[in-house]
Amino acid sequence: MSRRVTLATADREAFAALRFLECDPEIAGPPPEELTISIEPHRTYYRIVQNGELLREQMTTKSVLESLHAHLFILSLADHPAAPLVHAASLRRGERRVLLVGPKGGGKTTLALCLLQDGYEVEGDEHVFVTPEGLIARPRGLRVKESAAPIVPGLPKVLAAAASYQDPHGHRIYNLDPRQSGAPSWRIERGGADAVILLRPNHGGYSSFRPISSLTLVREVMAECGITRMDRGKAVSVVAKFIGTAKGYDLSLGDPAGAVACVNKALEGLF
């Protein structure tokens, strides 16, 4: 990553809200550029100031949070301007990396938390940049929904200490550092994928998986890619390149224990 952002405020309410954006993984690579964004209470509103320049003004801490959420996302896109961004969780076990690909609400975070308890290291739960030099997860805390609490053992206790945000639909979403959930470390590295697993929600059912062809995998991953029209040809090329070295699977995501066993089997199949 090219920059590390520090959010600074003396306002207690703003500080509590900004904890939802807190994220401090170890990232392999050269030291990042430091960037400070201050959130300053001013009269009845907040001023968001970046490197001494006024970025935005917002009336409430919630709108400050939403505004910064979008701003940080845009900054991360600027780090990899031509790279497709795939909806995927990225995990490692030893030297192997597995991507869980699926849309929002497809079960990536919940499965990632289950895998974390099985000894996997979670790099990210939502976005992975595909660059010519390899894949790299976008640094962001895990976004855990309340609905995951009954599924992952021990999670309710962990969430009780985590910062949260209520989305426009009234759902509470938690910001979780993998280390809070028992991971010994949180490290993000650039590299290839050994297995790419497409998630098909089968809530309430059993989990099962099957291998799929690389052509199907490219097609499905492209469908979960955010790219600009200008970069489409390059995006196809880098996605095809990383898929070419990975095994592809389709996982019908039902019971969590079965899903973990399927991911383990998928990785075992590589040896």
């Binding site: 062809s213 690389s214 052509l215 490219v218 097609r219 492209m222 029209r229 489409r232 040809g233 196809v236 090329s237 095809a240 390149k241 898929i243 070419g244």
Partner: peptide, 24 residues
């Protein structure tokens, strides 16, 4: 055409029409 080889065939990007083709 931008031709990309994958283990099961070709993924081809057609620049002029901004289309992706999958060939087994």
């Amino acid at each position: 055409l931008e031709v990309n080889e994958v283990p099961d065939g070709y993924v081809i990007y057609e620049t002029a029409r901004d289309r992706v083709h999958y060939l087994n």
